[in-house]
Design a protein around this nucleic acid. Structure first.
Length: 143
DNA sequence: TTTCTGACA
DNA sequence: TGTCAGAA
């Protein structure tokens, strides 16, 4: 017995060349080199003159910086907002991985099961997605 | 062919 | 920030 089957793809093994990053994020190579020079992004450690490689997280940052630039923010502000957004992702992950108990997909709606409302275990709370709109629903637990 | 660095009719 | 040159 060595390794168990991994649950997730090892994102550290996902690397992208600058050309791929350009296509995916629509940020020019010129910009990517400039942002790097300004210290906003950092490619994987490469030898001098070697082509740049970016990990998934950096690709994510580049994507969002561009997204904020497109919204009219300055580069510095776009970077700040992207970094702030980046900090929020782990929080969302933590909450969801702990609180989301299951997902129920029906024909007309999707239900996110967030488990019991409280310690009394009398009610269960669901996140609802229906007709493109979201809401919450609390149902009594049938024992 | 792609990417790199440096420079600017 | 685009684009071109000359090299890798």
């Amino acid at each position: 017995m060595e390794e168990q089957n991994p649950t997730f793809i090892d994102s550290t093994k996902l690397i992208f060349g600058i050309g791929q990053v350009e296509k995916i994020t629509e940020v020019s190579g010129r910009q990517l080199r400039y942002w790097e020079k300004q210290g906003y992004i950092q490619p994987l450690e490469q030898k001098k003159g070697a082509s740049r490689q970016y990990n998934l997280h950096t690709l994510f940052m580049i994507f969002h910086i561009q997204r904020f630039l497109n919204q009219g923010f300055t580069l510095q502000t776009a970077v700040d907002k992207a970094r702030k957004f980046d900090e929020q992702i782990p929080v969302l992950r933590e909450f969801l991985s702990n609180q989301l108990k299951g997902i129920i997909v029906k024909d007309d709606q999707k239900l996110l099961d967030f488990g019991y409302l409280d310690a009394s275990h009398q009610q269960r709370i669901y996140g609802v997605i229906k007709d493109g709109k979201t809401s919450f629903k609390i149902d009594p637990v049938s024992h």
